[in-house]
Simulated assay, not measured.
Amino acid sequence: MRDHATHAPCFASFPPAVLRPAELTAFSRSGGARTIPLVTRAHGAEVFLTGQTLFDGGAAIPLHTHNCPESVTILEGDAIVEIDGTEHRVTRFDTTYVPAGTTHRFRNASTTEPMRILWVYASVDATRTVVETGVTTRVDEEHGATADENR
């Protein structure tokens, strides 16, 4: 553990907040997936990003990479996660860790039941590069292109 002379927290400008996903707007990620941003720059985050993605039955997101580590916890349903070419079946409360630059994707294992994940990026400057297209976007800029009402 490092000794910090000031003992100032690294997140001093982020005000306390209670974020209620059921009251927030979900943004379409296409293919039957919607994202609800939670801890973001819009709330003053300087260190990491969090949010939830909801998958309709059979929904999937494309194979992609990030410029920083990501951790995902399954909150509802069952999923197939592909990490670096290997598929894993995961269920409620199972958690993944994916290092920066590692190809991965999630898909709902059910064709009828919803699936929900909680994601955490290790940087507010997180980017996503879709493998098929090579297009890179900032994660926090993906929110707002197409807004749906949550539920």
Rank of each mutant, 00 (worst) to 15 (best):
M1R: 09
M1P: 12
R2G: 07
A5M: 15
A8C: 15
A12F: 15
S13C: 14
S13R: 15
S13P: 15
P16H: 15
A17N: 14
V18K: 15
L19W: 10
R20C: 08
P21G: 03
A22C: 09
E23C: 04
A26T: 01
A26G: 02
A26S: 04
S28F: 06
R29D: 04
R29H: 10
S30N: 14
S30C: 13
G31W: 03
G31R: 03
A33T: 04
R34H: 04
R34I: 02
R34W: 04
R34E: 02
T35K: 01
T35F: 05
I36T: 01
L38I: 01
L38K: 03
V39K: 00
T40R: 11
T40D: 11
R41F: 08
G44K: 04
A45K: 07
F48P: 01
L49E: 00
T50H: 05
T50K: 02
T50C: 13
T50S: 08
T50M: 12
G51R: 00
G51K: 01
G51C: 08
T53A: 09
F55A: 00
F55L: 03
F55T: 00
F55Q: 00
D56P: 07
G58F: 02
G58R: 03
A59Y: 01
A59T: 03
A60G: 07
I61S: 03
P62R: 03
P62I: 02
P62Q: 06
H66V: 01
N67H: 06
C68H: 12
C68I: 03
E70P: 10
E70D: 13
V72L: 14
T73Y: 06
L75G: 01
E76G: 02
D78W: 01
A79K: 00
I80C: 06
V81D: 00
V81K: 00
E82Y: 04
E87T: 09
H88L: 08
H88Y: 13
H88W: 06
R89I: 09
R89C: 08
R92N: 06
D94Y: 04
T95A: 15
T95N: 07
G101I: 10
G101Y: 14
G101D: 10
T102S: 07
T103C: 11
T103I: 10
H104E: 03
R107K: 05
N108E: 01
S110A: 06
T111Y: 09
T111K: 14
T112G: 12
T112I: 15
E113P: 05
P114N: 10
P114K: 05
L118F: 08
Y121Q: 06
S123H: 12
D125S: 10
D125K: 12
A126Q: 06
T127P: 09
R128T: 06
R128M: 13
R128L: 13
V131A: 11
E132A: 08
T133K: 06
G134S: 05
V135T: 04
T136F: 10
T137V: 08
R138L: 13
D140Q: 12
E141P: 07
E142L: 11
H143A: 07
A145E: 10
T146C: 11
T146V: 13
T146A: 11
E149S: 09
E149W: 10
